[in-house]
Computed example of a mutant assay.
Amino acid sequence: MSDGFLFLDQYVTVEAEARPHSQKEGILKRITIILAILLGIELFYYVGIVPFLPLASVRLNSVQGIPRDDLLRYAGINESTSYMSLNAAKVSETLRSIPSIASVSIIKHFPNSVDIVVTERTAVAVSLAKVSGKLVPIYIDRQGVVFKVGGEINSALPLVSGLVFDQVVPGIKLPGYLKNFFASLELLEKNNPALLQTISEFRIQQKTYGGYELVIYPANHMGKVRLGSELNEEVLRYMMLVLDVLASKGIQTDEIDFRTGTISYRTKEASSG
C-alpha cells in the first residue's frame, strides 16, 4: 500500500507541475496571436492606406523666377496628391515644358514622399532679336534652346549674331546644325573662359546650300576673322597667335581667312596672301 500512495503522490506532483507550464504556453500563444494581428493591421495600414493618403513630404529644389507653389501647381501636385495618384512621367513632362527647365528627375519614396530634382537651363550665349520693334537680349543654352527673352543683357556671355528667327518666344529651338557650336561655347567657358573673353562677337553666316561658317570679331584686334564651322580651344589659340604676330609687324588687317590650309588676309589698303 505504501508503494501505491507513493505513486499517487508522484502523479499529483507531476500534474501540478505540468499545469502551470501549459498555462504559460497558452498565454504566450495568445500574446503571439495578438502581436501578429497588430502587426497585420499596421502592415495593412502602411501598405494599403498610407500610399493613398496625401503626400507627407514633397522635396523640390528652387527654380529661379518661379515660386515653389506655382511650380507645384503647374505640375498638378496639390494637398490631395498621394503616392499612388502621382504620375511621375506626366509630372516630369509637364515641368520640362517650362522653357527654363532642362531636365527633371523624380524619385518616389514608398509610402508617402517624393523628391523632385529640377535642372535649369544655363545660358552659354546671348543674342539680340527684335520684339515689338525693339532689340532685346535672348539667352541660348548648350542645346540651342532659347529659354529667356528680354531683361538686362549679360555682357559676360559671348555675343552671337546672324541668327534668323521666325518668331522670338521662350522655348524655340535653333536649327540642329548649330547645336555643336553652342556646345563648343559651353566647353570653352568651362576650360578656358579667359580665351573666350578675347572674342567680342561670333557671327553665324549661313551658307547657300546649308550649314554655316563663323565670322569672329576679336575684342583687341581690328577687323574680322573667317573660320569654318569648327570651334575649339586649339582653333582660337592659333587664331590669336596669328593676330598677335601680324600686329607685332604693324600689319592692320581688315579680314583674315582661316577656312583653307593657307592663311590669307586683307588690309584696308590692299589684299595679300
Rank of each mutant, 00 (worst) to 15 (best):
M1I: 13
L8R: 12
D9S: 15
T13C: 12
V14K: 13
A18V: 14
P20D: 00
L28H: 06
K29P: 02
K29C: 11
I33E: 06
I34G: 08
L35K: 08
A36F: 07
A36H: 11
I37L: 11
L39N: 07
F44A: 15
V50I: 15
V50F: 10
F52L: 14
Q64A: 09
I66H: 08
P67F: 00
L72K: 06
I77W: 07
I77R: 06
Y83F: 14
N87S: 15
S92T: 04
S100K: 04
S100I: 11
I101W: 01
S103H: 05
V104R: 07
V104K: 03
I106K: 05
N112Q: 13
D115C: 07
V118G: 02
T122N: 14
A123Q: 11
V124R: 07
A125P: 06
A125D: 12
V126G: 08
V126C: 02
A129N: 01
G133F: 03
L135R: 05
V136S: 00
P137H: 12
P137W: 02
Q143V: 13
V146M: 03
V149H: 04
S155I: 12
L157C: 01
V160F: 07
F165V: 12
K173T: 07
L174H: 09
P175A: 04
P175F: 03
K179H: 10
L185C: 08
P193I: 01
A194D: 14
Q197Y: 13
F202R: 11
I204L: 06
G210Y: 00
Y212S: 05
E213S: 10
G223W: 10
K224S: 12
G228S: 01
L231D: 00
L236F: 11
L241D: 10
V242N: 02
L243Q: 13
S248A: 12
E255Q: 10
D257W: 00
R259P: 02
I263E: 03
Y265H: 11
K268E: 13
E269D: 15
E269W: 03
G273C: 02
G273S: 14
